[in-house]
């Protein structure tokens, strides 16, 4: 426990001093503003496009933007921000193994579990802070321009996206116990994401797949209820736990 606390503080300090925390939060802030901004600009863009359409003989009716559009943008942009987090975090373990910075600490009795867990904790904190900052900013602007009550289950939908991020972070932890570079970790994590999307093409599996958590539009519109996401949420949480637990013994084989 002593080792965990000391190393956790070191990780937090690393995130802040290497400016990674600042950059990630900055990006989530941008994404948070961008989502309502894109929704707001949609009618303007359509108007411009409409002129071309009229020339072609097609008429475009007046488009009414609501909170639903703003939140649809949020759902569309969050995975991009998550990818940014994954790219920035992919080397968090492997670079330490490769550089040998852990050697002095491990020989002083720091356990490898403490290393795995404190880095996981810092990644979770960063992702959570970013995701909820983004949510808060989008919520604020959507309330400002439209009415958040139009969309349903907002915080639950955000929770689902957050949970999906937790799963991806667990993938980083798992692949880091096997890989020797950040690029390999990125590749493995990306492969998991692609595999899930491919499997999602079969409608039968869809309900159980973690990728379902990213599909929040039916939730906003009230076509699906939070209960319809339970299976995917439980599976995501369970897989995350398994990946992390599996990473612990495997990390012991990592040469440092």
């Amino acid at each position: 426990m002593k080792g965990f606390t000391a190393f956790f503080i070191k990780e937090l300090r690393e995130m802040i001093r290497t400016k990674r925390m600042m950059i990630i939060l900055g990006i989530f802030l941008v994404v948070g503003i961008l989502s309502p901004a894109m929704a707001k600009l949609t009618p303007e863009l359509m108007k411009m496009a409409a002129e071309d359409f009229t020339e072609m003989g097609v008429t475009v009716g007046e488009i009414k933007v609501t909170a639903l559009d703003s939140w649809a943008q949020f759902t569309k942009n969050m995975p991009t921000a998550l990818i940014v987090v994954i790219i920035m975090m992919s080397g968090i373990y492997t670079s330490e193994y490769a550089r040998g910075t852990l050697v002095p600490l491990i020989t002083k009795g720091l356990s490898r579990q403490a290393v795995v867990l404190s880095k996981l904790a810092v990644m979770l904190i960063t992702w959570s802070a970013g995701a909820w900052l983004c949510y808060g900013v989008t919520y604020f602007y959507t309330e400002w321009y439209w009415d958040n009550n139009t969309a349903k289950a907002l915080s639950f939908a955000a929770f689902c996206i957050w949970l999906f991020g937790v799963l991806m972070i667990s993938c980083i932890v798992f692949f880091s116990s096997l890989a020797s570079s950040g690029a390999q970790v990125m590749l493995g994590t990306g492969a998991v994401y692609i595999a899930m999307t491919m499997a999602g093409l079969y409608s039968k599996a869809k309900e159980y797949l973690p990728t379902r958590l990213l599909d929040s539009n039916p939730l906003y519109r009230g076509e699906l209820l939070p209960g319809d996401y339970t299976k995917a949420a439980v599976i995501s949480a369970a897989v995350s736990a398994v990946l992390i637990l599996a990473a612990m013994p495997i990390t012991k084989r990592q040469m440092i």
């Binding site: 080792g3 190393f7 002083k108 720091l110």
Partner: peptide
Amino acid sequence: YMNAREYLTLCGEITG
């Protein structure tokens, strides 16, 4: 990103 004293403190904390 640490200075010498901070690094030694980290090492010492790990050993308890």
